[in-house]
Amino acid sequence: MKILGKSRSVLFQSFLWIYFLISLYPLVYLLFFSLKNNDEIFYTNPLGFPMHLRFHNYVQAITQFDIARYFKNSLIVSVASIVFILAFSLMFAYAAARLEWRLKGATYSYLLLGLFIPTQVILIPLAVLMRDIGIANSYSALIVPYVAFNLSFSSLIFYGFFRTIPVEIEESAYMDGANIYRIFMQIMLPLVKPAVATVTIFAFLSVWNEFPLALILITDQAHKTLPTGLLSFSGQFSTEWGPMGAAMVLSSIPMIVLYLVLGDQVEKALTVGSAVKG
């Protein structure tokens, strides 16, 4: 019985490490071929470590193709989206959790409907709307929808947090002469910092990697973000794998670094997100 248990656990162990390779080797393969030339990728050394490290592929990805510009666009869109997501949903959640006004419950439920609406359902009228109000092909064409789509989830998280803070804290601040804006900015905001971290990570990952809206709403090269920008050179580059690989590696670095540094927090932010949506 004991031997059986042991051999079973060895079997499981090897299975886990085989899947470890399946999970990571494609990324290693990508890293390797980003440093090779076609000859090496196709014939002489398709699988192994590059024979000469051709960093020139990276120089090519940056200088000849627009990777730097896509990077900048992604950064602008992500940062602006996150700023507005945080501002709007923190204010809304505070009002919904703490202030007294009519239609509070109904408004809160209305905003939470967003959790159940898949993006593609509203894609067509949204594209028409963006064209009609004349902001298609600008940063706002992405920032505004990204903010709107992330409001429901963020408000839900912040609402939960605000509800747990004792009312006495606000009341004593009010007694000391603080007005509602100061209470919000200086007392309440510092108390919800952990939730801000969760929402920021979740929003950053979803905005940085967002694909369908970016594809439909941005058609001019100057405003493309990384996910759609990378797409536009697969055609140009189908003959040159090295620089294409380099561009893919460069565009993945921020996310991988973020995950390796923050680890559990990233997993938590993402899994909380889906638990809510389910």
């Binding site: 501002a87 709007f88 949903s89 204010m91 809304f92 505070y94 009002a95 919904a96 202030l99 006004w101 408004t107 209305y110 905003l111 409907l113 967003g114 609406i117 509203i122 949204l126 709307l129 505004v144 929808p145 903010v147 709107a148 789509f149 409001l151 429901s152 408000s155 919000f184």
Partner: peptide, 14 residues
Amino acid sequence: FVLPAVLTFSMIVA
């Protein structure tokens, strides 16, 4: 506090 979120959501989602 409420209007920015509600207006954005109404225009872009609802």
